[in-house]
Every structure is written in C-alpha cells, then in structure tokens.
Design a protein around this nucleic acid. Structure first.
Lengths: 126, 126
DNA sequence: GCTCCAGTACGAGTTAAGTCGAACTTAACA
DNA sequence: TGTTAAGTTCGACTTAACTCGTACTGGAGC
C-alpha cells in the first residue's frame, strides 16, 4: 500500500516501537482529502504544532502540553482533534497522556512536498 | 527577488503580453502567507477554480463565468476575492470583464510543489 | 442620450470555527 | 482509598466564513 511508498522528503521516518496502544480513530490513508488537510493546516496554531512535531521528533511522540502553548486544555483538545480528523496526526493513549505524531508516511505518499512547506514555514511576527 | 527563482514544477509559465491593465490590489509576492494560501485552497469550489485555471490555460486568463460554476454572481465575487487577497490569483479588468490567472511564478518560488498538489487533486465524488 | 451586461457592494441569514470555563473521566501514585 | 493531574466533554459565546438576493457601477454599443 501507500504506507511503504518511497518518501523523497527531507524529513526522516523514525522506526516504530513494537507494542503500542491502538491509535485513536483516524481516516484511512487513502481517504484523506486534500481540502481537509489544507483546512487543518490553515490555522497558525495548528501549523505551529505540526511544524514542531516535524522538527523535534527526537522522541517517538509528544504530549499536548509539551508544545508549550498558552491555551486552555479544552482549546488544545479542539485543535488536536481537528488535526487528527483531517488525517494530519496520529494520537495514541499512554495512560493519562495522549501522544501525537505526524503521519509522515501517509502524507508524503499522498501529498508529496506538503510537509516540506510546513517545515519551511515561519510563524507570523505580529 | 523571488519572482525570478527557478520553478521546478511541471506547470509551464506562459509569456505575458506587453500592454495589460494594471492588476487589482494584491499582496506582494514576499508577503504571501502560507496559512492564508492554505485557507484559500481549503474550499472545494476555489480548489476547482484554481485547478481549472492551471490545467486549461490555453488563453492568457479567464472570465468568471468561463468556469461554468452554478453559483450566483455575488458568490463568485466572494470566492475570487478570497483567492486574490490570499495571493493565489491575479485579476485584471478588461472593459467589463475581470479576468483571472494563477500567480504561478510567485507561488512556485515561495511554496514549491503546492500547485502540483492542486493539479493532482480530484474533486469529491459525493 | 439609451440599453445591456459583467461584475461589485451591501446587507441579512445561516452555518462553521475558534475560545474558554467548568465539570467530568481515568490512570498513576501514595 | 484518596489525591493529583492529563485530557475530554459539554455548553455558551464570539467571530469568521459561506450563500444569496437585490441594488448598484461602469464600460460597450446602438
């Protein structure tokens, strides 16, 4: 399937540990819609989250408040769910924590070059 | 500047005729924001417009009702302005007609690969 | 002058999205 | 068992976006 397609992106893919919690409900790779992904990435806060996930993936995945976002918890839930339902990130439950990672393979296979644009993005200065 | 940067895209660039009306107000190429472009392209109707402009550019640019969209005129104005203000299209006034073209050079220089995703997009079947 | 027509401007209704507080759930840990 | 803390769910508010009808503008042509 598309999950093993060669990714000509600069973003490297980390190997997955063997025993993981099941991912939360997410759209299948071949049903992810471009307009939904673009809509999810059109929000600066979510763009910041995805970019940070792509740039600093020394660990497998990250909790919500690892991002250092100055928003209430309910707002973060809203944005992370928007990213997951659009097919941008995958979320897994580790005890109390819900950790997130970008679906790099799926997105590179379906929308090559898109994640590179996110990496090159610079947040608004305002 | 960035407007003459090499575009490694498959979309070819048409030469511009010499005497043209001034473009309508639009953001400068180096001030176009990724999140604004993604937001403009997250609407299926606008995605259709941009894709059609990219695929069928045998003429220099096109009027609004050339697209064959079954929407009232005021709705089309809304969407074309959204595309123009985000920096996706350029519009020029020819007498009564307002013709549109995609800012291929600017977008390829700033967001390489993005327009290729639009070309490869398939509209929702529903 | 006059009509015709492409497109805009304005306004209103509707829907979707962002924002947040407060209450709730649940695993971890003492 | 009781507490703590990560994150959700719910509801309400606000703001932005979409949709459209109507009226308007402004060039083309008679």
């Amino acid at each position: 399937m598309a999950s093993t397609a060669p990714t000509r992106s600069a973003i490297k893919v980390l190997p997955e540990p063997s025993d993981l919690p099941e991912p939360l409900p997410e759209p299948a790779a071949d049903t992810v819609r471009l307009e939904a992904v673009l809509g999810a990435l059109s929000d600066p806060l979510r763009l910041r989250v995805v970019r940070k996930l792509l740039l600093e993936r020394e660990e497998f995945d990250h909790t919500c408040n690892w991002f250092g976002l100055d928003r209430p918890k309910s707002s973060l839930t809203h944005h992370f769910r928007a990213l997951r339902e659009a097919g941008v990130i995958r979320q897994r439950q580790y005890g109390l924590e819900r950790r997130s990672q970008v679906r790099v393979d799926d997105l590179n296979a379906r929308f090559p070059g898109l994640l590179d644009l996110v990496v090159d993005w610079t947040p608004p200065t305002h």
